[in-house]
Design a protein around this nucleic acid. Structure first.
Lengths: 365, 365
DNA sequence: TAATTCGTCGCAACCGTTTGCGGTGTCGTT
DNA sequence: AACGACACCGCAAACGGTTGCGACGAATTA
């Protein structure tokens, strides 16, 4: 008897729903809807859907097939509110357009999806204000944890402290914040720069110019020091005169005169990143220098550009994918073992040299 | 009297909170917490925080300053659950690493932030399954709307239909779905290809090769037809023999033999995208051809690669930023005027030629 | 003095889901 | 006949916030 009634309503609902679906935007169906239609309580529906032993097989069957038919999906907002667990993590990065960050994201996402987490990506465009706003929005939406790579223009850290006060686990990667104690995953910039510079020396370079990033950035500092270290290793002097401050395509062109002035006495260039290296090659080529015949060049952070450059650029690969995976694993550890131990970990990935034409000093390409 | 009491508790709470903040992760403070501490009801707190006229100035002052002190922030989940409005939109794209999509995202975000929306980005990696999962997750989290650029491998569209049934506004951009009626924002691939091909003809090319994407993709089809149209405009024949199917760096190298075989009789190349164009230039250069002296080359979709290439690549710019802005504006329109009119709009952006060295036929670079 | 108004505030319901606990009905047991 | 055991299901509270409505005291008015 009851069964017949129920299925009558069932069918009515179905046809009714599909007919109105054409005219109006139907709200997603809820457990309460199902309960009302089937004439049972929401709690029973909830339990039936998750095979709770208190529910009779018949009821389970009824509810489950009905839920299937109407394509029921639990409201994630309600679940999160009740459980205070969103299964979502936030990623805050300066710019997604950078190949390095894109690969980091891929690493993060692959681990995240595998463990049932969703990732929401925020880009700050190197803007401090945006970083503050993005982090606040993530906290407001109760993400379970956050992965951050700092903006270049961030010099205050209250918004980071704020995360800890709100109990949000955080892992910094690449652009870490020295003033905040936390888990960290970084590329070994010092060692990478040393490898790159050593390579130039091995290729026969005697006087190597360095195109450097601002020294208040860890990246800039560490890469410069790695460069100096390799020079000293080989009894070469680390001359400040050979260090030109430019770390983007634009700044290279802006300081082109300085580079050209130094070029005659130089036979190698180590640039703080690939686009700087490529821009420098172009500046030199336009001024009559041949690369790598006259001057060998090495970049940093292998992106797809390195292959496209003329000549193809020797560079050190930064292992963004691995860094992303490691960062996500660390974060999950903090989220799931709600251990309050402030035992922070730092993982370091050493870059690897990718040798191409641009560093073969003395050869024609 | 009462004031003194309250502030005593206030101060107690403060010191207590800061002391435990060191040892344990404190949950974010809620309206209920504030109500309990101040000895008033949650409703009063809620109203005080939003300057409701029913609340006395004293109470408002008390609540507001206290909320400020403890850095109260409303729980976005709770707000969304009640209002069924998340102020969040979803972006589903194949790959963020592509410069075009990155710029689209910037356009979207700038409009979104300006109108009080957050954006959550999902990349499908050109994977149909991932696209289904991502869309489902967005719906589960009750985003207010979704912007999609389809994956290459999507041939079923039930998951798109599902969005409409759930009443989620959708705008397709760039990689639109022809089978689903919806708002669309696209680049005029046909016209762009025609402009690019015309440019080669203007530069003196008589026989132009086309490196084409698969013809089941709209992009591939439209760009090829634009190419043919320009040829016919100038009484040149559109010879299928001159069309080589390759649309990535890898496929260019795979079909390098075909390209080289055709090269002697060709004086121009129009490639379906920039990386294909650049790879083709490299293949030709390695085989003794000089560009643009022997063969002029034009790409499609100006990315930063075009500047880095040797020689710098002439290409047509796709206006990703504008497309992103337009798509987001359309979406907001649908979200905020809950008009059920199925009056769908299609916005078309015509690319612009960016002339560089690679297309200056007959000249030395 | 009694009735009305106004200024302040709290109760309770709601959004969608979960879950402890208690209630009902049907057995079988003594 | 009375009891406990068990299967099955619903009530209500909770997550955090909002809001219609009613309550209460004080001040104003008739």
């Amino acid at each position: 008897m009851r069964g017949i009634d129920v299925f009558a309503i069932f069918n009515f609902y179905q046809s009714n729903n599909s007919s109105i679906a054409i005219k109006m935007k139907s709200q997603p169906i809820t457990i309460k809807d199902i309960a009302r239609i089937l004439g049972i309580s929401p709690s029973t529906v909830s339990r039936a859907l998750k095979d709770h032993p208190d529910i009779s097989p018949k009821t389970k069957q009824l509810v489950q097939t009905f839920a299937e038919k109407v394509n029921y999906r639990p409201n994630a907002l309600a679940l999160s509110l009740r459980s205070s667990k969103t299964n979502t993590i936030g990623i805050v990065i300066p710019e997604i357009v950078h190949h390095f960050f894109s690969t980091v994201i891929s690493g993060i996402e692959d681990v995240a999806y595998g463990r049932g987490y969703n990732a929401i990506i925020c880009q700050t465009n190197e803007n401090y204000q945006r970083e503050v706003i993005d982090l606040q929005a993530l906290v407001d939406n109760r993400v379970d944890g956050i992965l951050i790579s700092m903006s270049k223009n961030t010099h205050e850290f209250a918004h980071f402290e704020n995360l800890k006060e709100n109990g949000v686990p955080v892992v910094f990667f690449d652009r870490i914040c020295e003033q905040i104690s936390s888990d960290r995953v970084i590329a070994d910039d010092f060692e990478g720069a040393r490898i790159a510079t050593r390579h130039l020396i091995d290729k026969g370079c005697k006087k190597i110019m360095h195109l450097a990033a601002p020294q208040h950035l860890l990246i800039g500092k560490n890469r410069k020091e790695g460069y100096c270290s390799a020079l000293k290793e080989h009894k070469l002097s680390c001359d400040d005169r050979l260090i030109v401050k430019c770390d983007t395509r634009e700044t290279v062109f802006a300081r082109a005169d300085d580079i050209i002035r130094l070029a005659p006495e130089v036979d190698g260039i180590f640039a703080v990143n690939d686009s700087t290296a490529i821009a420098a090659m172009q500046v030199l080529q336009r001024n009559g220098y041949s690369i790598p015949k006259d001057i060998a060049v090495v970049g940093f952070g292998d992106g797809p550009n390195a292959n496209i450059a003329y000549p193809p650029l020797t560079t050190v690969e930064q292992k963004g994918y691995d860094i992303g995976q490691a960062a996500m694993r660390l974060l999950i550890g903090h989220i799931e073992n709600n251990v309050d131990e402030e035992e922070y970990e730092t993982k370091i990935f050493t870059p690897e040299l990718v040798e191409r034409a641009s560093s073969q000093l003395g050869t024609e390409y």
